[in-house]
Computed example of a mutant assay.
Amino acid sequence: MANLSVFVPVLLLALFIKEGEPVRCWTCSSDLNPLCNDPFLAGRSDNSYLFRLENCDSNAGATYPYLTSSKSACKKMKKYINGQLIVSRGCTWKRQDDYSTSCPSASNGPNEITSFCETCEYDGCNGAATISKTIALLAAPLTLLLFK
């Protein structure tokens, strides 16, 4: 039981430590590459060369106006342009104090309707649906208790 009392606080601490490395996001658009659409299977061996993880901090300088108080994040957006559904994945920037998963406001053109937009802040999180870090870290102590 003593091992568990040390293990749980360490896991909880890991949840709140901000990683020092920049976030890397999948970057693609389904109008240019149909495999970017859902389901997004970047890890499959037959199409892994078609996608790349972009270092979002490498191009932050020219894009977001309040860089001293911003952070990079990954974004997945579904937008109808002239009636065609386009799924795009890439980088975006948010205020440092913004912990929501909503996208920063973006303007829609006359023939554009955004139906879904979500952000996340860890490597590759704008790809396929996966178990998030939080759920995995919370499940670890429960798994230990079950298999004790």
Rank of each mutant, 00 (worst) to 15 (best):
N33I: 00
N33G: 01
P34C: 00
L35R: 08
N37I: 01
D38Q: 11
D38S: 11
F40Q: 04
A42M: 02
A42F: 01
A42I: 00
R44V: 09
D46T: 07
N47S: 13
N47K: 07
L50C: 05
L50A: 15
F51W: 00
F51R: 05
R52M: 12
L53W: 08
E54F: 13
E54C: 09
E54G: 10
N55V: 08
D57Q: 12
N59A: 12
G61L: 11
G61W: 11
G61T: 08
A62G: 15
A62K: 10
T63K: 15
T63A: 14
P65W: 01
P65L: 04
P65D: 00
P65E: 03
Y66L: 06
L67G: 13
L67P: 10
T68M: 12
T68C: 09
S69T: 12
S70T: 05
S70K: 02
S70N: 03
K71R: 14
K71Y: 04
K75S: 15
K76L: 15
K76G: 08
K76W: 04
K79F: 01
Y80A: 05
I81P: 05
I81G: 11
N82L: 07
G83Q: 09
G83Y: 08
Q84T: 13
I86D: 13
V87W: 05
V87A: 06
V87L: 05
S88N: 09
G90E: 08
C91I: 00
C91E: 01
C91W: 02
C91R: 02
W93Y: 15
D98F: 00
Y99Q: 13
Y99K: 11
S100L: 01
S100D: 05
S102G: 09
C103Y: 01
P104N: 07
P104V: 06
P104H: 06
S105D: 10
S105L: 12
A106D: 12
S107H: 07
S107I: 01
N108K: 07
N108C: 08
P110C: 03
N111Q: 14
N111T: 11
I113M: 11
T114G: 05
S115T: 15
C117F: 05
T119S: 09
C120W: 04
C120T: 03
E121F: 15
Y122C: 06
G124Y: 06
C125P: 02
N126D: 03
N126C: 05
N126P: 03
N126T: 02
N126E: 03
G127M: 04
G127I: 04
T130I: 01
I131P: 04
I131F: 14
S132V: 06
K133P: 00
K133F: 06
T134E: 12
T134S: 12
T134C: 06
L137N: 13
L138R: 11
A139Y: 00
A139S: 14
A140G: 07
P141H: 08
P141I: 04
T143N: 14
